[in-house]
Structures are given as C-alpha cells and as structure tokens.
C-alpha cells in the first residue's frame, strides 16, 4: 500500500496535468466546431443560389461575405480567449 502511494505521488509530481493547457485546448477546439459547420452551410447555400439564378450573383456574394464574417467572429472569440485563459 505504501509502495502504491509512493508510486502515485511520484507519478503525480512527474506528470503535472496543467489545467491551463487543457483549458486552452478546449476553448479553441470547441469554439471552432460551430463556425466550421455554419460557414460551410453559408457558402453551400450561396453556391446553390448562384447556380439557380446566375444574375443574382452580386447580391448573393455580398450577403455571403457578411454572413461569413459574422460566423467567423465566433471562432475568433475562441482564438482570442486562447491567449486569455490561465
């Protein structure tokens, strides 16, 4: 039992789990899922719209870029919080 405790304490101090690293990894990893799907949907719908009516390309393109920037902002919050998490 004492040997087990010694091994466990040795391992605990040899491999310190840093919660900062876990937090940083989680914050951006989870933040990138939603916007990835969202941006894919936005661009897919824009391509479909232009394929159905090529004359609408200018307006669709403008709206597509606005939607892209709004969805991208959420992923970038995760990127910024990556540097703030401690």
């Amino acid at each position: 039992m004492a040997v087990l405790a010694a091994i466990v304490t040795f391992l605990a101090q040899a491999t310190t789990i840093s919660t900062k690293g876990i937090g940083q990894g989680l914050v951006y990893g989870l933040a990138a899922i939603g916007p990835g799907i969202g941006i894919g949907i936005i661009f897919g719908k824009a391509i479909e719209a232009v394929a159905r009516q090529p004359e609408a390309r200018g307006q669709v393109q403008t709206l597509m870029f606005i939607g892209f920037a709004l969805a991208e902002a959420l992923a970038l919050f995760g990127f910024v919080l990556f540097f703030i998490v401690k």
Binding site: E72, A73, L76, F79, V80
Partner: peptide, 13 residues
C-alpha cells in the same frame, strides 16, 4: 464587443 473583437482577432491571427 463583437464588432471590435472580429476586426482585432482577424488581424492578430
């Protein structure tokens, strides 16, 4: 907040 962080984070990245 979103307006400023969007511009800031894009440029930082």
């Amino acid at each position: 907040i979103t307006l400023s962080v969007r511009l800031f984070a894009n440029m930082v990245a």
